[in-house]
Amino acid sequence: MTKISIITINYNDLVGLEKTFNSVVGQSNTDFEYIVIDGGSTDGSKEFLEQNSDKLAYWISEKDSGVYNAMNKGIKAAKGDYIMFLNSRDFLIDTTIIDKVGKDLDGSTAIYYGNLIYSLNGVNTQLWSPPDTLSFTYFLSDSLPHPSSFIKRELFDTHFYYSEHFKIVSDWEFFIYCICKMNASYKHLDYVISNFDNSGMSSVKENLIKIDTEKQQVFEKHFPLFLEDIKVLKDGNSQRFKQYQAIKSNKFKFTLLKGLMSLLLLFQPKVKMKRYITKI
């Protein structure tokens, strides 16, 4: 039977750790291993782990260099076929979910991903349901949240562990590289897996510039031949383009828009088209 390793990353969040811990150890199917990587907390988290060490396959409490350093420690300690990250404050949607997921993980697919509920300060805000078919365009603006994803353990050894020099996008980098460049197989599990606390680093508005900078570095590293194409795809994903599509669906508005564009083009210098001739 396929075995799952559930990994929780925690730092000075005892309340969140207890919530996550209880949702995991309370599962009806206990045929999985549970790992907790604590970053040297001083709020009682370490003592909580000591008191509940009998329910953990592995745990450690020591300083780390960041979230992805901690996640990599968890991967290295994991012995399961698939890895799931359920960090402090995130929790499994009910007590039967691991039993349900375990029946779907037959080992034939590299990445399984399900639905989740976003919450903020304990209040459910949004149901997130990803598409069945993933694409490069999809990953330009979205990702697969780790609390609803199950990643084949061997993918990390075959390709790479999470990049520790990034602060926010390393899990996104892993998914876009494996799926869009290495053609890793994937499957959507169309049911809710977990509740995701939407107050982390990637959800803070002040970090949006950092996210764009790190994503650009990923594109330059893994997809250097497609940088110009990525700019076009980003334009296609922009709010302005979506507005254009909405106008296009209305015959009267689209006719009016074309008229305005024709008028503006009268004052636009003509663009010379380059011609490429191949000699035989």
Rank of each mutant, 00 (worst) to 15 (best):
T2I: 13
K3P: 02
I4T: 09
S5L: 01
T8V: 02
I9K: 05
N10V: 12
D13T: 08
V15C: 04
L17H: 04
E18N: 05
F21L: 06
N29H: 08
V36C: 08
G39V: 08
G44V: 09
G44M: 12
K46L: 11
F48A: 05
Q51F: 14
N52F: 12
S53P: 13
A57D: 01
Y58F: 14
W59H: 08
K63H: 13
D64N: 15
S65K: 15
V67R: 15
Y68C: 10
N69K: 15
N69Y: 11
K76R: 15
A78G: 08
D81A: 05
Y82D: 03
L86Q: 07
D90K: 12
I93G: 05
T95G: 07
T96M: 08
I98A: 04
I98W: 03
G102Q: 04
D106V: 01
T109V: 10
A110G: 07
A110N: 14
Y112F: 11
Y113K: 01
G114F: 02
G114E: 00
N115H: 11
I117Y: 08
S119K: 09
L120F: 14
N124K: 14
T125V: 10
T125K: 12
L127T: 07
S129I: 10
D132H: 13
Y138H: 03
F139H: 01
S141A: 08
S141K: 13
S141W: 05
L144P: 05
S149H: 03
I151D: 02
K152D: 04
Y161D: 03
Y161V: 00
S163T: 11
H165N: 10
H165M: 00
F166P: 02
I168P: 00
S170P: 03
F175M: 06
I176K: 02
K181E: 04
V192G: 02
S194Q: 02
S194K: 01
S203Q: 13
K205R: 09
E206L: 12
N207H: 07
Q216H: 12
Q216R: 11
E220N: 09
E220Y: 01
K221E: 06
F223K: 07
E228S: 11
E228N: 14
L233F: 13
N237I: 00
N237Q: 09
F241H: 07
A246Q: 10
K248I: 00
K248L: 02
T255R: 12
S262W: 08
S262I: 05
L264N: 07
L265T: 12
L266M: 15
Q268T: 13
K272M: 12
M273C: 12
K274L: 07
